[in-house]
Design a protein around this nucleic acid. Sequence first.
DNA 1: TCTGGGGTCCTAGGACCC
DNA 2: TCTGGGGTCCTAGGACCC
Length: 420
Amino acid sequence: MRDKVFALIDCNAFYVSCERVFNPKLNSRPVVALSNNDGCIISRSKEAKALGIKMGVPLFKVKDIVEKEKVVVFSSNYTLYADMSRRVMNIISSSSPYTEIYSIDEAFVELSSLPIDYESYAHQLRQTILQHTGIPVSIGIASTKTLAKVANHKAKKDDSLNGVCSLVNYNNIDQILELTEVGDVWGVGRRLSKKLINHGIHNAKLLKNCSDSWIRKMMSVNGLKTITELRGISCIPLEEYSMTRKSCCTTRSFGKLLTNLEDIEQAVTTFARRAAERIRSESLAASCVSVFVRTNPFDKKSAYYSNGASRTLSHPTHDSITIIETALLLTKRIFKNNYQYKKAGVLLSGLCDESEIQETLFEKNYNQNSDLMSAIDAINYRYGRDTLQMASECKVGNWKQKRENCTRNYTTQIDRLLLV
DNA sequence: TCTGGGGTCCTAGGACCC
DNA sequence: TCTGGGGTCCTAGGACCC
């Protein structure tokens, strides 16, 4: 059997690149994009990285650098990023029949059965994506997904490579692995990398040469897969067909601290409605609803409280009304007075396809709202996602998030088109 | 003052069964 | 006083990814 060949296409500083497409003046300036609620930095341009701004750091901790160096800061605009991602992924999908969309800014492609020169394919694809969307990407090519990640990393760092790095037929992979920090290996996170470094395993070459049994003990079966892949044996397959999800949750930090049950109920209603809408859009139904609330864990001065509760429904449903009623019941159960709440969330689990819902013996008309839900979904699709809400929500709820520097939805709303 | 959100998988340990 | 062996299922917690 022929060896596999995986290409990993990864967008460079994706959220920042999306913003730059619509504002080219930012092209050589330091730019960052923030997480929800303008909390942490989750995307950085090359210039911002060079200033020492780390991934995931809270904005307030780098405020001095941001001000002094005039770093441009964006609130995240997921509507825009999702649409730009769709465009990039469409180009990738049409370039090869074997594609896996791995995340909003990454895709794997399996190339071994295609009669092409891998590196020319990659350069061509990169050029097409840039030309059609304005998004720069880097491409790593290797015989396993884990090695393709390593190659991609190198393609990003080494400017002389023009954004493409292939390890196929490359005979000194060990040298590259030696220069790869163990924490940069796909599948080795913060905790494991600390543990491994304590045992003297600080780069990918050392990790690759560990014994199977030791790795099994340290990192469980996933670690075994990782080191096998580093040795060039593919054991994490391409997943062309996305698995149906097993859970769906909506959670948010609040823009300000909440103390009232009523305010939290408003937020939970919105979270429950959004989650219900999402599973309906995927033709799924939930059999269990969970709710959690918590205060701010970083605030050491105020009392900490965190609690959650779940309820299994008598039958799976995607009806917003049932899901919201259940969520509110659970909220009342876990809410306690005299705490300052920072975050809440709703989790729908036990998901099944809507066509597989079993009828119940004793309840009638349990699906009576389905026409109503379809009508609500159609209206919200046409006029914007929060056009129709539940009465227990509130348009300007106290929980609403901070989003101080958000760009327009240039590509998804006709009245928000870029003006030239 | 200010610290994201949405997922998946694995394991250990407890409860329970015969 | 002495107290088996072999299972399954569920859950909480820990790890990872982006």
